[in-house]
Design a protein around this nucleic acid. Sequence first.
DNA 1: CGTCGTCTTGATCTTTCTCAACCTGTGTGG
DNA 2: CCACACAGGTTGAGAAAGATCAAGACGACG
Lengths: 232, 232
Amino acid sequence: MAARDLEPGALACTTCPIGAASGVGHGGRCPLVDRRRRAGAYLYLEGGPAEKVWFVKEGRVVLTREADDRRGEGIAWTARGPGAMIGAEALVRPTYVDSARAVCDSTVCTASREAMAHWMAAREGAARTVLDLVLIAQSVDAPRRSGSDGSAVRRVAVFLLEDPRGTSSELPRRVIAGFLGMLPETLSRALKVLAERGVIETTRRTVRIADRAKLEEAARPEPVRPRAAAVR
Amino acid sequence: MAARDLEPGALACTTCPIGAASGVGHGGRCPLVDRRRRAGAYLYLEGGPAEKVWFVKEGRVVLTREADDRRGEGIAWTARGPGAMIGAEALVRPTYVDSARAVCDSTVCTASREAMAHWMAAREGAARTVLDLVLIAQSVDAPRRSGSDGSAVRRVAVFLLEDPRGTSSELPRRVIAGFLGMLPETLSRALKVLAERGVIETTRRTVRIADRAKLEEAARPEPVRPRAAAVR
DNA sequence: CGTCGTCTTGATCTTTCTCAACCTGTGTGG
DNA sequence: CCACACAGGTTGAGAAAGATCAAGACGACG
């Protein structure tokens, strides 16, 4: 489905929608303040006080939900890159609904919910700018997969076809496995199967699509099995 | 987690955020037009031209994505009730990313993307109103579950605890199964298990929580050794 | 160069998906 | 008003897929 079409490599304040709307480069001032975060750092925590809205300038941030004792990290359900706003729920509710964690060294901008609200109220079209950001991000998120969506190999093939993040090394395998509703072990085995078929080439951190036609074949839903009579 | 806290029974134009912002009841006029849709009717289709923005006034609408030949209905990933906006992606992209289908007789309001855009541009604070709607809906959606989130029985127990829709008869079992990343057959069996334990009472269309303590017990992660929490 | 975290591989067992048949309530038409 | 078809739900038996548990390999980093 829809290609993830945003995602430039990084973002300058002049090309950032918020910065542009603020008139950065023409004497304007963006309400957002830059922060650097190292890989692994949490930006905010699910259930914690939602004081700030965040904006990804460079890097990659994973959103997780429903952390529990079992899987300490919770369910990773999406990853946001440059140009995406995160933690926007701060504008409408007192606590964050997700935890956000940088998966690689990242630059993020922040503003308090109040600053953001003022900014939106003060400028014509600003709220619309934010709305667009939120809607675009939303329409890019794919629902998490599960076993009822086809075999692990098929789910991986679909993901690799549709999502450029699948072949980059930005996202840890653990996170990708989460998107696909499987364990890292299962992801690893599925990648191995595809590699053995000559569909892809893998290293421990990268995937390269070797044969797109074969990958599309692997992504196709299995034809309903032709009767149990088939005794091979 | 987060209780689904919106969801009044139905909505009048005067209590609807869009209607209120339009000044309905004070001589204002809402850009949205009422339509009735029977259970099972599709409002719009994934990939189809995104001409309209929708607003649920009464009833329940399920959003699905990634329909394919195999499972014609696609993956149901959320359901929206009174007060929710759907198809808002029309404001930022040319095609719908989901299919929307009324699961019970519903009243929905529509406006063309242009009308909506004009409405937002013309009124102070209107875009912010829409933004809030979108953000609230978003923060209420739970990520789909999958087999790696625990057994079917546990996933069902968690859902019943957290989501009031689980016990109402509004959502078809097939849809709930979709949210939980399992097939209807599996959902049926899991409900049977819980019923046999005296946790719930079920009919073909309803679920009643008979013993909340037992339900919480069933929702608890199986006491397996916690995996090494990867906190860097 | 050694430690650590992440990923991979292996063996085993449980779960859930499959396929098919059977209910049951609802709506339709005679 | 009843027979009947239909959709959605339930049940059952079997097989396959993935979860588990455990251990080893690889790469990053101090």
